[in-house]
């Protein structure tokens, strides 16, 4: 048969030599290999005690950010929901009332903001779409749970702690991303 390429190689099927037939040298070689593996460094990370750092581009759970004075940045413009390829984000807007200037930065804010973490594909397009730097993906991931409804994260779950009243929690939630 004519070969299609010149790379094909005839398989060698010559009978084994006496040395090979004894098998013992081959077994000894194999044993030395496995013995050598005992002194190799183990790549396993002892997970709960030690955690491997995430890469700088890791995209985890969403966080709704606040500004330096602790006001919510989100204006419920809906660009994130529009950009979302998985249609995981829904929101309802509301108008800021007088006296709420310390809570919301602009005149409009999100009264309801939900992300379905089971739909979310963590692509980060919402983060890119947001004109107010309000939503970004943090360095944590969604924990396992028994109940599907717990994976719909409401605004209270997503909002970052207030930097003025809870600076430590704020710094922790913020991570090294921003």
């Amino acid at each position: 048969m004519q070969s299609l390429t010149n790379r094909s190689k005839q398989v060698e099927r010559k009978p084994m030599t006496l040395w090979e037939k004894m098998y013992v040298p081959a077994i000894a070689k194999g044993m030395s290999i496995t013995f050598g593996h005992m002194f190799k460094k183990k790549p396993t990370v002892n997970y709960p005690e030690k955690q491997r750092p995430f890469s700088p581009v890791f995209r985890g759970l969403h966080v709704l950010n606040r500004d330096e004075e602790g006001r919510e940045r989100c204006t419920a413009c809906g660009l994130c929901a529009l950009a979302c390829p998985a249609e995981a984000i829904t929101m309802e807007a509301a108008e800021r009332l007088p006296g709420e200037e310390n809570l919301y930065r602009e005149e409009k804010y999100a009264a309801k903001y939900e992300i379905n973490m089971l739909r979310c594909i963590f692509c980060g397009l919402c983060e890119e779409a947001c004109p107010k730097d309000a939503v970004y993906l943090s360095e944590t991931f969604a924990p396992a749970n028994y109940n599907r409804t717990t994976f719909i994260y409401r605004k209270e779950d997503l909002l970052i702690p207030d930097p003025k009243t809870q600076p430590a929690e704020y710094a922790k939630a913020k991570g090294n991303k921003l």
Partner: peptide, 10 residues
């Protein structure tokens, strides 16, 4: 485990 570069029961 140690021959397969793992840690084994710990």
């Amino acid at each position: 485990a140690i021959m397969q570069d793992r840690r084994g029961p710990n």
